[in-house]
Each structure stands twice: as structure tokens, then as C-alpha cells.
């Protein structure tokens, strides 16, 4: 993926089309599908597990600047951030704020 059109080709074929196809399919299907249908339920579960795997990957094997923060600090930040989300009225914003605060404090204290 070093030069030229390759990354853009990948964006169209692997990023744009696999997403957009569902929007187009929605037009084709019209009103013929219930949000509670079994296949949609299963896909929702699969998609949730996929997102969780990406979250874990970004915390455990991150690239660039985040990789310079010690693993223990990253784990503490995601754990304490999630705990804050649970405790503070299930507010995603509170979870992000606390997680970020732990990450920055930890990076400054234990970073390189």
C-alpha cells in the first residue's frame, strides 16, 4: 500500500462498496424486512462482537503514538473508563472523559 491508486482502490472495493451495498439493498427491499427478524438479530450480535474485537485490538496492539503508552496504562484506562460509564448514569461521554484522563495521567507518569 505504498504508492499510487492502490489505497484508493482498496477504499472503494473493501470500504465503500461493502458498506453502501446495504443502503442500496434497503431501497430494493423497501418495507419487506422487520428489524426484529432472526437474521438481523444474529447479524447484530456478530457486528457487536466484531466491534469488540477491534476495540481489544486497538488497546492491545495499537499503532504509533498509542503504542508508546505502556500496556498497563492502556488496560487501566479502558477498564476505569468503562467502570465510570457504568457508574455515572451509563453516560458514554463520562466514560470517554475518565478513560482519557487515566490514559494521559498514566502516560505522563509511566511513559517513556
Amino acid at each position: 500500500m505504498s504508492f499510487g491508486m492502490e489505497p484508493y482502490l482498496a477504499l472503494i472495493l473493501l470500504g465503500f462498496l461493502p458498506s453502501e451495498i446495504w443502503r442500496w439493498l434497503g431501497i430494493v427491499l423497501g418495507g419487506g424486512l422487520s428489524e426484529e427478524s432472526e437474521i438481523i438479530l444474529w447479524v447484530r450480535a456478530v457486528a457487536t462482537a466484531l466491534v469488540a474485537a477491534v476495540v481489544a485490538r486497538l488497546v492491545l496492539i495499537p499503532p504509533g503514538a498509542l503504542a508508546a503508552v505502556p500496556l498497563g496504562v492502556r488496560l487501566a484506562a479502558i477498564g476505569i473508563g468503562f467502570l465510570a460509564f457504568l457508574l455515572i448514569r451509563r453516560s458514554a461521554f463520562a466514560g470517554v472523559l475518565v478513560g482519557e484522563a487515566v490514559l494521559v495521567a498514566g502516560a505522563l507518569a509511566f511513559g517513556p
Binding site: 477491534v54 486497538l58 495499537p62 492502556r74 468503562f82 494521559v104
Partner: peptide, 16 residues
Amino acid sequence: AAAMFITPISFLTSTA
């Protein structure tokens, strides 16, 4: 590092 951490922590909390 903080900017990159936005993605995992916000995905986790908003999905939850």
C-alpha cells in the same frame, strides 16, 4: 495517544 484512544473508549461505551 489520547486522540487515538478516543476510538476504542468511545466505541466500547457507545456500543455498551
